Amino acid sequence: MFLNAFLGHLDIYSAGHTHTASVAVEVWDGTPPAQDAAQWDERAEADFEPTSGEVAVWSMGLGRADDAITLAGSGGSWRVRVSCTGRAAAAALSEDEGTGDGVEKYLVQFWPAKH
């Protein structure tokens, strides 16, 4: 599984180990519309409990991204859907050339969990 949810953070595992993936983040008021599954290599959903109303993106190689994603004024219960494409190409690139940029692409969507 490429997505693991923990209290306060999400771990997303890349198929390659020596590249910088592209990440787009969306925050929705409700469940985002379904997407064509054929356009993604992997998709996963999980419950997410942030410790505050903001989420930061971290990379093992680059550290913390400058911008934080604002979910709400405080924590709360959220759902997250992570979709990814380019996994096979990123894995091959890591094996052959060793580095790459934006080959693997992620879409991370957050929305409030319904109680």
Rank of each mutant, 00 (worst) to 15 (best):
R79S: 06
G100S: 15
V57N: 05
F6T: 06
G73E: 13
A56T: 05
T18G: 12
C84N: 04
A15Y: 06
S77Q: 10
F2G: 02
G30F: 09
K114S: 11
V25D: 00
V103H: 09
M1T: 05
D41R: 06
L71R: 10
S14N: 15
T31K: 11
A68S: 14
F48D: 01
Q109E: 14
W78K: 01
L10P: 10
A44S: 14
T31F: 00
A89S: 14
A5W: 06
S74E: 14
H17P: 01
R79M: 12
D66M: 10
L71F: 09
R87E: 11
W40S: 02
H17W: 05
V27N: 08
Q35Y: 02
A113H: 10
N4P: 00
S52K: 02
Q35G: 10
L71C: 11
G73K: 08
G30K: 13
T70E: 10
L62F: 07
E45I: 03
V25R: 01
G8C: 06
V57Y: 06
I12W: 03
L7T: 12
V55P: 07
A90P: 01
N4Y: 03
G75D: 09
D66T: 14
D66V: 13
E26Q: 15
V23Q: 02
S52V: 04
T20V: 09
L3H: 03
D47P: 05
A72Y: 03
T18D: 12
D47G: 11
D29I: 01
H19L: 11
R79C: 12
G76H: 10
A38S: 12
V103M: 05
V80A: 09
V25L: 02
G75L: 02
Y106D: 00
A44K: 09
F2K: 03
L71P: 02
S14P: 01
T20E: 10
V25T: 09
D67C: 07
G102F: 07
W40G: 02
A89E: 15
F110R: 03
A37K: 13
G53W: 04
F6E: 14
I69D: 01
R87G: 05
T85V: 12
E42D: 00
T51P: 00
A113V: 03
G30H: 12
V57I: 15
W78G: 01
G100K: 04
A34Q: 09
S59H: 12
G86K: 09
